Simulated assay, not measured.
Amino acid sequence: MPPMVVLSFLDAPVVTGPARGLIHLARALPPEVRLHVAILRGRGAGPVPPLDEMSDGALTVHEIQERGPYDPSILARAVAIAWRTGARVVQSHSYKPHLIAMAVRAARRVPWVGHHHGWTAENDKVKRYHRIDAWSLPRADRVVAVAQSARDIVVHEGVRPDRVVVIPNAVDARDLSTPMTREEARAKLGIPEGEFVAAVVGRLSHEKGQDLALRALAQARAQGAQVTFALAGDGPDRAMLEALSRELDLGLAVRFLGHQKLVGVVYKACDMLVMPSRSEAMPNALLEAMTLGLPVVATRVGGVPEVADDGEMAWIVEPESVESLARAVVDCVARPEERARRVAQARSRAAERHDPARRAERYLDLYSALGVR
């Protein structure tokens, strides 16, 4: 008997959090369920991410080449993929895939599962995308929210509460492993031995709060903390952040590592994670650090307090508070025994609640509830 096909639509020129989530899901699903991913490729964009290779062949990738920013022909091509693969359920991640999945559902008469990974408000263009999300998601048969806080948002936007399912993100430690030693990882990234280094991982943009991290670093060092920051990621705020680093006279206390394909190397080289976000849904960086045993200082936004308990598993502070962030960094650096205690608790929580196999079981329960077998 052929496997049940789940077809996910993704709009991602690089491997983002939703893409990693699909890789984890494909690996964890039983053989009788096969995940296919149709990736939209914008005009002039680079090659689509090799998710099939990254999943060890557990998923199948289809490419939909866009001929312009508004290309209605992608709907017919998406429907053709759904018929060709025999998709029994369609899924979508972000605003354009939502619209495509809605069209495929109508043509193929299969359930549609939309996903909400959180919203930002960095510019008017992104806000317009949110309005499309708010219009489309209430029309889905089910909406997967990655955290309770994300569920509350979509319910407020009009999705019926009984149609929202909370399925938290998961972490597969295989994606974070590296054969490098700590010394080799530091040499690769240009980090000297002997430094206590905090990783700040994520896209360099306003909602991620790296400007707050730099100001907190300046305060922490002024209070005597021997710590440096390594920013892993790229984005529209890089020039501003580099200028701010110069303004704060941080010098070699800050390193801009750029986009890192193998984020596990960054974690191997660093001693803790600082996550100064202004908004999040279910941050993968937090789950990754907890899984690998790095102590965490993070802001109380989105699903962060659902994942890690303040005082037990991490240092959780109020968002936008540079002073609180600096105090937490100083405390974390100064108390190695407390770091070890919280790391042990965090590792246990990550293994218990954010295992890919458990996440796959939740999806199978969702498909069953939709009558898909």
Rank of each mutant, 00 (worst) to 15 (best):
H36C: 15
V37M: 06
A38Q: 04
A38G: 01
L40W: 04
L40F: 14
G42T: 02
G42M: 00
G42R: 11
R43E: 14
R43S: 13
A45D: 15
A45G: 06
A45C: 13
A45F: 15
G46T: 06
P47H: 07
P47D: 03
P47L: 03
P47A: 06
L51E: 08
S55R: 05
D56F: 15
D56N: 15
G57I: 09
A58T: 10
A58Y: 10
T60Q: 11
V61K: 02
H62D: 08
E63I: 11
E63F: 06
E63L: 08
I64F: 07
I64A: 07
I64Q: 07
Q65A: 14
Q65I: 06
E66A: 03
R67F: 03
G68P: 04
Y70T: 09
Y70M: 10
D71E: 12
D71H: 10
P72L: 03
P72W: 01
S73R: 12
S73N: 01
I74N: 01
L75S: 03
A76M: 12
R77H: 15
R77G: 10
R77A: 15
A78M: 03
V79Q: 09
V79M: 04
A80T: 13
A80M: 05
A82E: 14
W83I: 07
W83Q: 14
R84G: 14
T85C: 07
T85A: 06
T85D: 13
G86K: 14
A87T: 06
R88L: 00
V90W: 12
S94P: 02
K96R: 15
H98M: 00
I100C: 03
I100G: 05
A101Y: 09
A101L: 05
A101H: 09
M102Q: 13
A103E: 11
V104A: 11
A106S: 08
A107Q: 12
R108I: 10
R108S: 11
R109N: 04
V110G: 03
V110E: 04
P111K: 10
P111D: 12
V113C: 07
H115A: 05
H116E: 13
G118H: 14
W119A: 00
W119S: 01
A121E: 08
E122K: 06
E122W: 10
K125V: 04
V126H: 00
K127N: 13
K127R: 15
Y129Q: 04
Y129H: 04
